[in-house]
Design a protein around this nucleic acid. Structure first.
Length: 552
DNA sequence: CTGACTTGCGCC
DNA sequence: AAAGGGCGCAAGTCAG
């Protein structure tokens, strides 16, 4: 595989072809305007582009209609390697290290390739690449780590392509939905008619003439003055109350949330030219999940998904994995009994069939508790039975929790490491033999320690789930491209959305069922990449629809 | 006035 | 019916 490092040089680009040991055999200097043509030409043969950060290179290439097959995103791979317990950290240290640690992705819509005074320009990507390759080569877990680095870099390409394409969004459908629920768009600073009416009902019911229901403080005082025993104003708390004003208040909160989070202002900010445009940030979450920036892309409420509509003659292929995380846990712990339960489409039902628990509800609440650290109530009561039936799976999360409580690093299957805890309890855990304090400070530290244990418990499962999803995305991206057609990424079947365990593909109608097939094949590939021949299934729900709302 | 923090709630 | 893990965002609140 040819590797080419791209380096910015003021208004020019230097492309360095590398040998296996990382030395440059050929250096090509290009004016910026010629980069896209150069990349297109070199893509005729297998090549891996090595660059500091995909968000600084790929948007302009996509804008020019050029797709790349593979890259190494040094910013992301650096972040993984710096935390990985599979790596000898001394191999990564250089004068530049702090600069790489601090490097942030760019999300500006500004299409100019080179912002002025970019901290990335003070870093040497070729030298960083050599250090990373050395750290990888010296790792005792080279195979797993190499897969993680490749998957993370592929994710960067997917994210850039999704940001470039945008999610098809019908502003007219969205506006009709808003008008139906809230009334016509109000003047700035005014409430929509429906909210105004509900606010009036609430004020009357609680005998609070000046009440602003948007103010938690005012609302809490009004509820208490009406004799209701509440300590907060959450919807779930209010639902427990018997009072004539509660239904209007709950309705108000629901509609107010829609207005604030996904109302007319949201449409104006985030929807342009029929596309919802936000930024996906691979590796943006400590566990390896993606984060997003702009428009709350990862929490688009089901309420407005009817506005995500394929273009004329196109379809959305919506696919999600049923119960990804328990399946991942079965695979990473090699728990054959849990894998047996995962053989069925509904893992929780499989647990019932396997005799572990009596009902599906018990299976679900028990597994959520095992993965999130719920110890009280229903899920706590399930634990002994789950432990007996699934000793390896439950043992793995329990051990991750204990390690976290001791202040240790845990890691995902492919080697993403958890951060070290901060705070007084962690410092004490590091210095064994320190006498425990007594009193309130001790309780406080115990609470923090257990909370960190819940974090590390979840980290190993959520993080490995994110790795499965990355492999799924990466393989699917290449399958979609190979489905053929001509033209740029967004003129062919292409990914438009990704939500932890769910993908949306926008595709010409005649290819929709081929896409659905490729989505399933990619899931099988991801399972084999992570778990080899261990028999754990990842069944998908796949729907070919015109609107996202029709997928459920 | 701005900025930091809190509250509440959407998603997985 | 949550809880228990991870997020982003908007409005309200409060300190300076």
């Amino acid at each position: 595989m040819n590797r080419v490092v791209l380096v910015r040089r003021e208004a020019a680009v230097e492309a360095r072809d590398l040998t296996d040991d990382g030395t440059a055999v050929r250096v090509t200097r290009l004016p910026v305007e010629e980069l896209a043509g150069f990349v297109l030409q070199r893509e005729r043969e297998p090549v891996r582009w090595v660059w500091d950060d995909t968000t600084r290179w790929y948007p302009a290439l996509l804008q020019a209609g050029v797709r790349v097959e593979r890259c190494t995103d040094l910013r992301l791979t650096h972040a993984v390697l710096r935390r990985s317990p599979f790596v000898d950290q001394s191999l990564l240290v250089a004068a530049d290290t702090a600069g790489w640690d601090a490097l942030q992705p760019v999300t500006a819509t500004d299409a100019t390739l080179f912002p002025l005074d970019d901290p990335a320009d003070r870093l040497d990507p070729a030298a960083e690449h050599v250090r990373q390759q050395a750290a990888l080569a010296a790792s005792g877990e080279r195979g797993r780590l190499a897969l993680l680095l490749a998957a993370e870099s592929s994710g960067a390409l997917v994210a850039a392509e999704m940001t470039h394409a945008g999610l098809p969004w019908r502003a007219d459908v969205h506006e009709r939905l808003l008008t139906d629920l809230l009334g016509p768009r109000p003047l700035p600073g005014r409430r929509p008619a429906v909210l105004e009416r509900l606010a009036g009902e609430i004020r009357a019911a609680f005998a609070a003439p000046g009440l602003n229901p948007d103010s938690p403080g005012e609302l809490l005082r009004a509820l208490q003055a009406a004799g209701l025993p509440v300590g907060d104003t959450r919807s779930w708390t209010l639902e427990q109350l018997e009072h004539e004003g509660i239904p209007a208040l709950l309705e108000y909160k629901k509609l107010s949330r829609l207005l604030q989070a996904n109302g007319w202002a949201w449409l104006e900010s985030w929807v342009r030219d029929g596309r919802f445009r936000s930024y996906f940030l691979p590796g943006g979450v400590v566990t390896g999940r993606w984060a997003s920036n702009g428009g709350g892309a990862l929490s688009v409420p089901t309420q407005v998904r009817s506005a995500a509509v394929a273009d004329d003659g196109w379809r959305l292929v919506v696919a999600d994995v049923a119960q990804l995380e328990p399946r991942v846990l079965a695979g990473m712990s090699a728990d054959t009994a849990m894998a047996e339960a995962a053989r069925s489409t509904d893992l929780y039902q499989g647990m019932v069939a396997g005799g572990a628990v009596a009902t599906r509800a018990e299976a679900k609440v028990g597994m959520l508790g095992a993965m999130y650290g719920g110890t009280r109530g229903e899920s706590g009561r399930m634990m002994p039975r789950l432990t007996r039936r699934y000793p390896r799976a439950i043992g793995l999360v329990e051990e991750a929790a204990r390690a976290g409580e001791r202040g240790e690093v845990v890691h995902t299957l492919l080697g993403r490491g958890s951060p070290l805890p901060a705070g007084a309890w962690a410092e004490r855990a590091a210095e064994l033999g320190e006498p425990p304090e007594v009193g309130g400070a001790q309780d406080e530290q115990d609470r923090h320690r257990r909370a960190w244990g819940r974090f590390t418990r979840n980290f190993v499962v959520q993080g490995t789930g994110a790795e499965w999803a990355l492999c799924w995305l990466a393989d699917l991206r290449n399958r979609l491209w190979r489905l053929g057609g001509t033209g740029t990424v967004s003129e062919r079947p292409h990914l438009v959305f990704f939500l932890h365990d769910e993908v949306l593909v926008h595709t010409p109608e005649h290819l929709a069922y081929d896409v659905a097939e490729e989505v399933r094949r990619a899931a099988d590939v991801a399972g084999r990449l992570l778990f080899g021949s261990f028999p754990v299934d990842f069944p998908l729900d796949v729907a070919v629809v015109e609107s996202w709302a029709d997928a459920d």
